[in-house]
Protein backbone atom coordinates (compact mmCIF):
# COMPACT_ATOMS: atom_id res chain seq x y z
CA UNK A 1 0.00 0.00 0.00
CA UNK A 2 2.83 2.48 0.72
CA UNK A 3 4.20 3.07 -2.70
CA UNK A 4 6.50 6.10 -3.07
CA UNK A 5 5.28 8.74 -5.49
CA UNK A 6 7.83 11.46 -4.91
CA UNK A 7 11.34 10.98 -3.61
CA UNK A 8 13.84 13.75 -3.07
CA UNK A 9 17.22 13.40 -1.50
CA UNK A 10 20.01 15.77 -0.55
CA UNK A 11 18.34 18.79 -2.14
CA UNK A 12 20.24 22.05 -1.72
CA UNK A 13 19.26 25.52 -2.84
CA UNK A 14 21.27 28.64 -2.13
CA UNK A 15 20.46 32.28 -2.82
CA UNK A 16 23.80 34.00 -2.68
CA UNK A 17 24.91 33.47 0.89
CA UNK A 18 21.54 32.19 2.06
CA UNK A 19 21.21 28.45 2.30
CA UNK A 20 17.46 28.25 1.73
CA UNK A 21 17.28 24.46 1.44
CA UNK A 22 19.89 22.40 3.18
CA UNK A 23 20.07 18.69 2.43
CA UNK A 24 16.35 18.07 2.22
CA UNK A 25 15.10 14.51 1.86
CA UNK A 26 11.43 13.61 1.59
CA UNK A 27 9.39 10.66 0.46
CA UNK A 28 5.73 11.11 -0.28
CA UNK A 29 3.60 8.03 -0.73
CA UNK A 30 0.76 7.57 -3.14
CA UNK A 31 -2.57 8.61 -1.75
CA UNK A 32 -1.44 10.41 1.38
CA UNK A 33 -1.82 13.98 2.50
CA UNK A 34 1.62 15.12 3.46
CA UNK A 35 2.00 18.26 5.56
CA UNK A 36 4.93 20.64 5.42
CA UNK A 37 5.19 23.10 8.26
CA UNK A 38 7.77 25.45 9.66
CA UNK A 39 8.23 29.06 10.69
CA UNK A 40 8.13 31.85 8.10
CA UNK A 41 11.23 31.91 5.97
CA UNK A 42 11.98 28.25 6.69
CA UNK A 43 12.14 27.42 3.00
CA UNK A 44 8.78 25.76 2.43
CA UNK A 45 7.82 27.83 -0.59
CA UNK A 46 11.33 27.50 -1.93
CA UNK A 47 10.96 23.74 -1.75
CA UNK A 48 7.72 24.03 -3.73
CA UNK A 49 9.46 26.13 -6.31
CA UNK A 50 12.19 23.53 -6.61
CA UNK A 51 9.67 20.71 -6.87
CA UNK A 52 7.75 22.46 -9.64
CA UNK A 53 10.83 23.38 -11.64
CA UNK A 54 10.52 27.13 -11.13
CA UNK A 55 13.81 27.08 -9.24
CA UNK A 56 16.73 24.91 -10.17
CA UNK A 57 18.16 23.11 -7.14
CA UNK A 58 21.93 23.28 -6.71
CA UNK A 59 22.29 19.58 -6.02
CA UNK A 60 20.30 16.55 -4.98
CA UNK A 61 18.09 13.82 -6.36
CA UNK A 62 14.49 14.24 -7.43
CA UNK A 63 12.41 11.40 -8.79
CA UNK A 64 8.68 11.46 -9.30
CA UNK A 65 6.62 8.46 -10.23
CA UNK A 66 9.75 6.69 -11.40
CA UNK A 67 10.91 9.60 -13.52
CA UNK A 68 14.01 11.70 -12.90
CA UNK A 69 12.91 15.32 -12.65
CA UNK A 70 16.12 16.88 -11.34
CA UNK A 71 16.49 20.31 -12.91
CA UNK A 72 13.69 19.71 -15.35
CA UNK A 73 11.68 22.53 -16.89
CA UNK A 74 8.36 23.37 -15.23
CA UNK A 75 6.36 22.08 -18.18
CA UNK A 76 8.03 18.68 -17.92
CA UNK A 77 7.24 18.61 -14.21
CA UNK A 78 3.60 19.46 -14.80
CA UNK A 79 3.40 16.97 -17.59
CA UNK A 80 4.71 14.27 -15.26
CA UNK A 81 1.91 15.07 -12.84
CA UNK A 82 2.85 17.70 -10.26
CA UNK A 83 0.62 20.76 -10.00
CA UNK A 84 0.65 23.57 -7.51
CA UNK A 85 -0.99 26.66 -6.10
CA UNK A 86 0.74 29.78 -4.86
CA UNK A 87 1.02 31.34 -1.46
CA UNK A 88 0.29 34.76 -2.94
CA UNK A 89 -2.53 33.90 -5.27
CA UNK A 90 -1.35 34.02 -8.85
CA UNK A 91 -4.35 33.74 -11.07
CA UNK A 92 -4.56 35.12 -14.58
CA UNK A 93 -6.30 38.17 -13.22
CA UNK A 94 -8.00 39.41 -16.36
CA UNK A 95 -9.20 36.08 -17.64
CA UNK A 96 -12.51 34.60 -16.59
CA UNK A 97 -12.56 31.85 -13.99
CA UNK A 98 -13.40 29.33 -16.67
CA UNK A 99 -10.56 30.46 -18.90
CA UNK A 100 -8.16 30.18 -15.99
CA UNK A 101 -9.04 26.53 -15.62
CA UNK A 102 -8.93 26.03 -19.37
CA UNK A 103 -5.35 27.23 -19.37
CA UNK A 104 -4.69 24.45 -16.90
CA UNK A 105 -5.77 21.95 -19.57
CA UNK A 106 -2.99 23.15 -21.85
CA UNK A 107 -0.61 20.29 -21.05
CA UNK A 108 -3.31 17.73 -21.62
CA UNK A 109 -4.32 19.02 -25.05
CA UNK A 110 -2.42 19.38 -28.24
CA UNK A 111 -4.10 21.51 -30.90
CA UNK A 112 -1.36 23.35 -32.82
CA UNK A 113 -1.58 26.73 -34.51
CA UNK A 114 -2.90 25.02 -37.58
CA UNK A 115 -5.49 23.24 -35.52
CA UNK A 116 -6.46 26.55 -33.99
CA UNK A 117 -6.78 28.30 -37.36
CA UNK A 118 -8.27 25.56 -39.52
CA UNK A 119 -10.38 24.03 -36.77
CA UNK A 120 -10.61 20.47 -38.01
CA UNK A 121 -13.17 18.28 -36.17
CA UNK A 122 -10.49 16.91 -33.84
CA UNK A 123 -9.56 20.43 -32.73
CA UNK A 124 -13.18 21.42 -32.24
CA UNK A 125 -13.78 18.33 -30.17
CA UNK A 126 -10.71 18.94 -28.07
CA UNK A 127 -11.72 22.55 -27.46
CA UNK A 128 -15.22 21.47 -26.45
CA UNK A 129 -13.78 18.89 -24.08
CA UNK A 130 -11.48 21.46 -22.52
CA UNK A 131 -14.46 23.65 -21.84
CA UNK A 132 -16.53 20.84 -20.41
CA UNK A 133 -13.74 19.61 -18.17
CA UNK A 134 -13.05 23.14 -16.95
CA UNK A 135 -16.67 23.66 -16.05
CA UNK A 136 -16.68 20.30 -14.25
CA UNK A 137 -13.73 21.37 -12.19
CA UNK A 138 -15.39 24.63 -11.23
CA UNK A 139 -18.31 22.53 -10.04
CA UNK A 140 -15.93 20.24 -8.23
CA UNK A 141 -14.34 23.03 -6.18
CA UNK A 142 -17.72 24.63 -5.63
CA UNK A 143 -17.67 27.82 -7.70
CA UNK A 144 -19.64 26.93 -10.85
CA UNK A 145 -21.63 30.14 -10.65
CA UNK A 146 -18.50 32.27 -11.17
CA UNK A 147 -17.41 30.70 -14.46
CA UNK A 148 -17.73 33.87 -16.51
CA UNK A 149 -16.43 36.27 -13.91
CA UNK A 150 -12.94 37.71 -14.15
CA UNK A 151 -10.62 36.02 -11.73
CA UNK A 152 -9.64 39.33 -10.15
CA UNK A 153 -13.24 40.02 -9.22
CA UNK A 154 -13.71 36.83 -7.21
CA UNK A 155 -13.65 36.83 -3.45
CA UNK A 156 -10.47 35.78 -1.75
CA UNK A 157 -11.72 32.33 -0.80
CA UNK A 158 -13.08 31.73 -4.28
CA UNK A 159 -9.76 32.75 -5.79
CA UNK A 160 -8.07 30.09 -3.67
CA UNK A 161 -10.59 27.52 -4.91
CA UNK A 162 -10.09 28.64 -8.47
CA UNK A 163 -6.36 28.14 -8.11
CA UNK A 164 -7.00 24.60 -6.94
CA UNK A 165 -9.34 23.97 -9.88
CA UNK A 166 -6.73 25.31 -12.28
CA UNK A 167 -4.09 23.04 -10.79
CA UNK A 168 -6.43 20.04 -10.94
CA UNK A 169 -7.03 20.75 -14.61
CA UNK A 170 -3.53 19.51 -15.36
CA UNK A 171 -4.58 16.02 -14.12
CA UNK A 172 -1.94 15.92 -11.40
CA UNK A 173 -0.89 12.89 -9.43
CA UNK A 174 0.52 15.18 -6.76
CA UNK A 175 -1.20 18.43 -5.84
CA UNK A 176 1.02 20.87 -3.97
CA UNK A 177 -0.89 23.55 -2.04
CA UNK A 178 1.00 26.53 -0.61
CA UNK A 179 -0.90 27.85 2.42
CA UNK A 180 -4.34 27.43 0.86
CA UNK A 181 -6.14 28.39 4.06
CA UNK A 182 -4.23 31.61 4.65
CA UNK A 183 -6.66 34.45 5.19
CA UNK A 184 -9.73 32.21 5.35
CA UNK A 185 -12.32 32.29 8.10
CA UNK A 186 -13.05 29.09 10.08
CA UNK A 187 -16.06 28.19 7.94
CA UNK A 188 -14.11 28.54 4.71
CA UNK A 189 -11.28 26.56 6.24
CA UNK A 190 -13.66 23.72 7.08
CA UNK A 191 -14.95 23.69 3.51
CA UNK A 192 -11.41 23.70 2.22
CA UNK A 193 -10.58 20.75 4.43
CA UNK A 194 -13.52 18.83 3.02
CA UNK A 195 -12.41 19.71 -0.49
CA UNK A 196 -8.90 18.43 0.16
CA UNK A 197 -10.25 15.19 1.53
CA UNK A 198 -12.43 14.80 -1.51
CA UNK A 199 -9.46 15.37 -3.79
CA UNK A 200 -7.44 12.79 -1.93
CA UNK A 201 -10.27 10.29 -2.05
CA UNK A 202 -10.38 10.78 -5.79
CA UNK A 203 -6.83 9.50 -5.95
CA UNK A 204 -4.69 12.63 -5.94
CA UNK A 205 -1.83 12.79 -3.46
CA UNK A 206 -1.53 16.10 -1.64
CA UNK A 207 1.46 18.02 -0.38
CA UNK A 208 0.28 20.79 1.89
CA UNK A 209 2.02 23.78 3.39
CA UNK A 210 -0.06 25.20 6.16
CA UNK A 211 0.25 27.28 9.31
CA UNK A 212 -3.10 26.34 10.77
CA UNK A 213 -1.97 23.61 13.19
CA UNK A 214 -5.48 22.33 13.78
CA UNK A 215 -6.05 21.89 10.08
CA UNK A 216 -2.74 20.15 9.59
CA UNK A 217 -3.20 17.80 12.51
CA UNK A 218 -6.70 16.82 11.51
CA UNK A 219 -5.88 16.29 7.88
CA UNK A 220 -2.36 15.06 7.29
CA UNK A 221 -1.17 11.49 7.38
CA UNK A 222 2.44 12.54 7.87
CA UNK A 223 4.20 15.80 8.50
CA UNK A 224 7.68 17.19 7.94
CA UNK A 225 8.99 20.28 9.68
CA UNK A 226 11.42 22.70 8.09
CA UNK A 227 13.47 25.26 9.94
CA UNK A 228 16.19 27.42 8.45
CA UNK A 229 16.24 25.28 5.35
CA UNK A 230 16.68 22.01 7.24
CA UNK A 231 14.25 19.22 7.88
CA UNK A 232 14.17 18.98 11.65
CA UNK A 233 11.43 16.40 12.09
CA UNK A 234 9.19 14.05 10.20
CA UNK A 235 6.51 11.59 11.14
CA UNK A 236 2.95 11.17 12.34
CA UNK A 237 1.22 14.39 13.39
CA UNK A 238 1.08 13.48 17.08
CA UNK A 239 4.74 12.54 17.25
CA UNK A 240 5.84 15.68 15.46
CA UNK A 241 3.71 17.85 17.65
CA UNK A 242 5.52 16.72 20.77
CA UNK A 243 8.99 16.74 19.24
CA UNK A 244 11.14 19.10 21.36
CA UNK A 245 13.03 20.46 18.34
CA UNK A 246 9.78 21.43 16.69
CA UNK A 247 8.51 23.15 19.78
CA UNK A 248 11.77 25.03 20.05
CA UNK A 249 11.64 26.10 16.41
CA UNK A 250 8.12 27.41 16.85
CA UNK A 251 8.75 29.09 20.16
CA UNK A 252 11.66 30.93 18.58
CA UNK A 253 9.15 32.90 16.54
CA UNK A 254 5.79 34.35 17.40
CA UNK A 255 3.18 31.59 17.55
CA UNK A 256 1.11 31.46 14.40
Amino acid sequence: MTEALLEINGIHKRFGGLHALNDIALTINKGEIYGLIGPNGAGKTTLFNVLTGLYQPDEGKFTFNGRDLFRQKPYVVVESGIARTFQNIRLFANMSALENVMVGRHVRSKASVFGAILRPPSARKEEANIRIRAQELLDYVGIPQHAEELACNLSYGDQRRLEIARALATDPKLLALDEPAAGMNPKETEELKALMQKIRNDGVTILLIEHDVKLIMGLCDRIAVLDYGKKIAEGLPEAVKSNPRVIEAYLGVAPE
Binding site: T52, P74, Y75, F86, V103, A111, G115
Partner: peptide, 28 residues
Protein backbone atom coordinates in the same frame (compact mmCIF):
# COMPACT_ATOMS: atom_id res chain seq x y z
CA UNK B 1 -10.36 35.57 -34.11
CA UNK B 2 -9.76 31.86 -34.26
CA UNK B 3 -6.38 32.10 -32.61
CA UNK B 4 -7.86 34.22 -29.88
CA UNK B 5 -10.43 31.58 -28.99
CA UNK B 6 -8.04 28.69 -28.96
CA UNK B 7 -5.69 26.89 -26.68
CA UNK B 8 -2.86 28.94 -28.16
CA UNK B 9 -4.59 32.29 -27.71
CA UNK B 10 -5.38 31.49 -24.10
CA UNK B 11 -1.78 30.53 -23.51
CA UNK B 12 -0.62 33.90 -24.88
CA UNK B 13 -2.94 35.82 -22.62
CA UNK B 14 -1.99 33.67 -19.65
CA UNK B 15 1.66 34.50 -20.20
CA UNK B 16 0.85 38.17 -20.42
CA UNK B 17 -1.14 38.01 -17.22
CA UNK B 18 1.37 36.09 -15.15
CA UNK B 19 4.33 34.38 -16.68
CA UNK B 20 5.35 32.51 -13.53
CA UNK B 21 1.89 31.08 -13.05
CA UNK B 22 1.77 30.17 -16.74
CA UNK B 23 5.02 28.31 -16.31
CA UNK B 24 3.69 26.51 -13.28
CA UNK B 25 0.62 25.45 -15.26
CA UNK B 26 2.89 23.61 -17.64
CA UNK B 27 3.01 26.11 -20.48
CA UNK B 28 6.24 26.06 -22.40
Amino acid sequence: LRLQDSRIGRAWVAIREDEIAANAMGLN
